[in-house]
Computed example of a mutant assay.
Amino acid sequence: MSNGTTLVLGATGKTGRRVAARLRLHGTPVRAASRSSPTRFDWSDPGGWDAALRDVDAVYVVAPGVPGPVHGFVARAEAVGVRRLVLLSGRGADTWGDSAFGLDMRSAEDAVRGSALEWTVLRPSNFNQNFDEDVFSAPLVAGELALPAGEVPEPFIDVEDVADAAAAVLTEPGRHAGRVYELTGPRALTFAEAVGLISRASGREIRYRRISPAEYVAALVAEGVGEDDAHHVAEMFVLMEQGLITETTDDLAALLGRAPRTFEDYVVRAAAAGAWQRPHASEGS
């Protein structure tokens, strides 16, 4: 087990906050960093990086939304004596071809994998928790999720499994050096099937409707999402429809010695917590 300090970037995000908690439970000193943490970290402010990196042994890296900054960050990490990097990337990143999606993650992979440090890359599929903690949550609560996804399934993964994988790699120096782990759930589901399970577990009528990428971009922009960001998200669905990342893998089981959590298990937990219930009128007043 590593006892050096681990810097966790994106420490208030879906994976970062979970990874930090696991490391603390392991007894690993953690420096949690984000734009709103006591240890402030901003990808657009390289002047603050050295303070976050001081006396750090390992870094959990969640790439920024633009290509480029991770190269400079890795150079600083090398210069100040960091020994290990664990990067959160995306499933099958080297199969995305000339897609406009994921240029940020591919740039980050180039930086980390080209460094002189011990590195590991985690490439998970779409998170289950996108349905209750992120972009899909509000439409599901409203009763309909409309996306440009059809019959090509996605092997959704539980973010708790991703955090378990990251914590394992970060606390086992040497064992995972130079490895790329493609992390998936135990089976692939279409978005329609996923919404059907959510509807049943929540006890509400919730529908799935397929729309075109152009319609999805327009809907996101109408909700206040920037046009560039909206096109980027839509491009992810165009990529998924190519069917290159639908297969499940055994990488999580090999890494953790157990099977990944099922989507049904996630749905039961989230529904029991009230994830997709409409707020009462008094709560919105």
Rank of each mutant, 00 (worst) to 15 (best):
E193R: 11
V225I: 13
S212F: 01
R200G: 11
A219N: 05
M240H: 14
V159W: 06
D229A: 15
S202W: 05
G226N: 13
I198W: 01
R204C: 08
D164V: 08
A222P: 06
R187Y: 11
F237L: 02
R210D: 00
P173H: 00
R200T: 14
A192Y: 02
G196C: 07
E247F: 10
V159Y: 08
I245V: 15
T184A: 09
D164N: 11
L239D: 02
I206Y: 01
A230Y: 00
T249V: 02
A219Q: 10
L239T: 06
A163H: 03
M236R: 13
H176Y: 07
R204V: 05
A218Y: 00
R204Y: 04
A219Y: 03
S202Y: 02
L220R: 10
G196F: 06
Y208C: 00
D250G: 10
M240A: 14
L220V: 00
L239Q: 12
V238P: 05
E247T: 14
D250I: 03
G185W: 05
R175K: 13
V225K: 10
G174N: 08
V217L: 01
A234G: 02
L197F: 10
Y208T: 00
D161E: 05
A168K: 14
A201C: 10
A214L: 09
D164W: 05
L197N: 09
T248W: 06
E172A: 15
S199H: 07
A192G: 10
V195H: 03
V162A: 03
I198V: 14
V233C: 07
G178D: 05
M236F: 15
G185F: 08
T184W: 08
D158T: 05
Y181D: 04
L183V: 08
